[in-house]
Design a protein around this nucleic acid. Structure first.
Lengths: 180, 180, 180, 180
DNA sequence: GTATAATCGAGACGGTACGTCGGGTCTTTCG
DNA sequence: CGAAAGACCCGACGTACCGTCTCGATTATAC
């Protein structure tokens, strides 16, 4: 079928790793695609062959973070509590500025937005939906997701500080309340 | 006294208006400072004389939206309900992409972040704090603010759709619950 | 001996033909080696297997034009006159831009220069030398060659127009005069 | 009329000088526009603001060489002789590769060709025309120009050696003969 | 009225990143 | 092996935008 030299194994991951490191170290505006290529030990064209745009590249690099195994407590409340803790972690620490910059990367780039939605948001929403249906909750997964991640995101964007326990408690209570 | 030619009356507002229009039409990355100057019928330097940076300029343009008079129902629950409605409006419609891009603009620009915090976030938080103290609620205004605006912001950033009634209801319930 | 798959018959000629067409149509800088390969229905590597460089490739494509059988009038003057006519033809018409670009191709490429010298210039100079010795002329063949081809080349490079009769007449006169 | 910051005095010349040096040292393909800008102590955009293309830039750099004061012997033959000597000098020595590369620069760039024609060829042809009319010669200046410069150019392009005395003599004789 | 001084529109400036393109090499699979 | 396909590294191209810097021309206060 398709012939020709196959893409260098591991190059994709080397590039994405480079992006993640640079994103954490210098922020979205603080590195160029050329920096990425150099750090990944790759030609610049090899980056553009895989992702059309710096924004798309960053989205791809971030989407790997989105992965999430199911909690697995017995009760719905327990599972939600675990979920809140995990979300808190996602919006805290080193990830912070990277996530901020991810949003920056997508401004005015609908394709990147769509990729983000598909690779980053959808899995988390799906996990939530699975959890709700498992416990026969009639709540809307999209609403719960907004209720879960929104407050952490808002704190991150407006304050640039890690979420505190008061916020975690409030979110947990709100979530459990909304799940009926 | 101050000598020299006074700044052209109305230039500030012409510039900010141009920013708002361009922000709505093309997004943060979709226009240059030069575009702003041209559209405002002003030299580029006249923009930079007033705001040091594109991000700062955009923050200033957006902060006008932040204005908010206190609700004024009798009950705490009623006031919170009104506040949710107003917040929903702020995160819906034409403002949407502008707000999104505003956040984008501030990534990696601490000065702009601070300006945004001061001009955009603080007033809303202050209004909330006043409301809470007026009704003797012990709740943390910062937490309530995150709980109030976060879900709308999250939906905006991830979905690019207007908030629906289900979300409004959930946020209202969460807020009233958190205010004890 | 040599084993393995033999080179595809006719590929060489297909490639050179493609080069000639592209040279005429778009000029040296106006096509890539990839264009050549595509048009010849050949892989790019098959081109590089045969010629080391784009310039060398173009030289090879042009050298086929250089072919020249001896004139064969009785007199020296008659033979020179015929030679001028033939040279005029070489520097006119469709060949024009191709020849121009050939010279361009060789700038800064000594190997291509040498190949051009060997395949393109030498035969014509040899023909001239044979002609002169046949008629016992003491003139320097190199000088005569410059006097013969130079004016046509100059007109081509500076004017991009075909040589006119006045130029042909002047060249002929100069040549006959120089051959004593 | 047009206001705004005037172009930096001397920048044009600094750029052209840099081009000439780089052309002599490394040849047309041996330097980038960025090299030019760096060497001239100028931003790259300042180069592109003045000349649209690398080729156009090189043409401009070379055209300064074209300058030529009139000879001024008493006789037509003497003037032509002087002209030949000067032309010989133009096509010899350090200029050589630069001139070669100039032709390379213009391949496939009609605008550059036109600029070259206007700035480089026309003045020399005009000088020749003036000379001929001064001495009441009916000869075609264009033809004489081809006859004068062509042989030197041809030797340069094909041989990459300086013109020798034999060539100078032949060109002189041809020229005087053609001028009647 | 005549300095003095700040602002204005215009646009050039040095930098830096963008995304594209081409050259020449390397590496697959298929014949 | 040769061939077609296509990925690879490298580096130049020309464009765009940022934030700064001159210009000459206003337009005000201050002397």
């Amino acid at each position: 079928m398709s012939r020709g030299r196959p893409r260098t194994a591991g190059a994709d991951e080397a590039i994405l790793t480079a992006v993640r490191e640079l994103l954490t170290a210098h922020g979205f505006a603080g590195f160029s695609v050329d920096d990425v290529a150099t750090r990944a030990g790759v030609g610049r064209q090899s980056v553009y062959r895989r992702w059309p745009t710096k924004a798309a590249l960053v989205v791809a690099a971030m989407s790997a973070i989105a992965a999430g195994a199911p909690p697995g407590t017995g009760t719905l409340a327990g599972d939600l509590r675990a979920l809140v803790q995990r979300t808190r972690a996602a919006y805290a620490g080193a990830q912070r500025s990277a996530l901020l910059d991810l949003h920056a990367a997508m401004a005015g780039d609908p394709a990147a937005r769509a990729a983000f939605e598909e690779q980053f948001v959808a899995p988390r929403r799906a996990a939530l939906a699975a959890l709700l249906s498992e416990h026969d909750s009639p709540a809307d997964p999209a609403v719960l997701h907004d209720l879960l991640a929104g407050p952490f995101l808002h704190r991150l964007l407006t304050t640039d500080t890690d979420p505190d326990d008061a916020l975690v408690g409030a979110v947990t209570a709100a979530l459990i309340g909304a799940a009926s």
